[in-house]
Design a protein around this nucleic acid. Sequence first.
DNA 1: TGGGATAGCATGGGACCCCATGGGCGTCAA
DNA 2: TTGACGCCCATGGGGTCCCATGCTATCCCA
Lengths: 151, 151
Amino acid sequence: MDRFLSHFTHRFDAKGRVSIPAPFRQLLAKDGFEGVYAYPSLDQPALDCGGLKLLAEIDALLATMPPWSPARDAFATALLGTSEILRMDAEGRVSLDERLKAALGLSDVAVFVGQGHKFQIWEPSRFQAHLEESRLRVRGLRVKRGSEATV
Amino acid sequence: MDRFLSHFTHRFDAKGRVSIPAPFRQLLAKDGFEGVYAYPSLDQPALDCGGLKLLAEIDALLATMPPWSPARDAFATALLGTSEILRMDAEGRVSLDERLKAALGLSDVAVFVGQGHKFQIWEPSRFQAHLEESRLRVRGLRVKRGSEATV
DNA sequence: TGGGATAGCATGGGACCCCATGGGCGTCAA
DNA sequence: TTGACGCCCATGGGGTCCCATGCTATCCCA
């Protein structure tokens, strides 16, 4: 398996550490760097995470935009400028900044959500709300696509 | 046989495991991964299940959408984020989360329903109700098509 | 045609391992 | 000195693997 799938709920310990889900760690290990590349999600109160592969995808995306264009600058700022490198310990845990936790509304539990090429970290109740909204949107889009509604 | 057909009723054991019906297992084995890809059905209290082929269909759908677009995020969240990777043991059983069982209304028995490219897992009485409704809908559609006698 | 052998399959249960989580200790910087 | 952070070891529970049992349907042979 080569993408981030499924979802996991993990708890922060007294030191502010959380375990990255083991399946996700295995994926991250594949592109060989001992950490997590993360930046605040573009339009959600969540943290987008991934490995070197995600970073490469961002590069590819930026490459499709004209240099020095406002769009490219905006994407570069949002996806690269605000990013953080989270270091993992031997047990596969990372610790989040107090500032970052506050921004995401995190307290003692976090949800890890697979999204294929990346995964997200959410505060549980916020994610629940986001999930409802996403399902509604998907239902709507699926109807529009008509007969192609295989899924 | 290359499709999920027919339906089966199996029992959960004390550890929360159920046997995937043997005909379904044979199909899953064809695309060669020892597990089941599953996610909550979008508009039914059921679990949609399949193998790598089902996952590939979802990937293909996602690939048609621009990266970092709200639509793609919604699909990824609803179809990948809510998914579960159910590993099968040597006897072809999977175990369902207690939370997942609750969401589906499952207690000690589950119905496996073939749907061609995928199959579903239902709580028996809920499935019965769904079946009645489907029958009615089909009758209605058939009348509309004007081909009463043939079907 | 009928009865016994047999294989496939659903189900039960024990043992073990992975993994999430907790906590101690040293190091470095404020 | 103190608090934050990185590194190490400990532990307990859930999940996975492995072996066992009973049922049923099919096949084979008399």
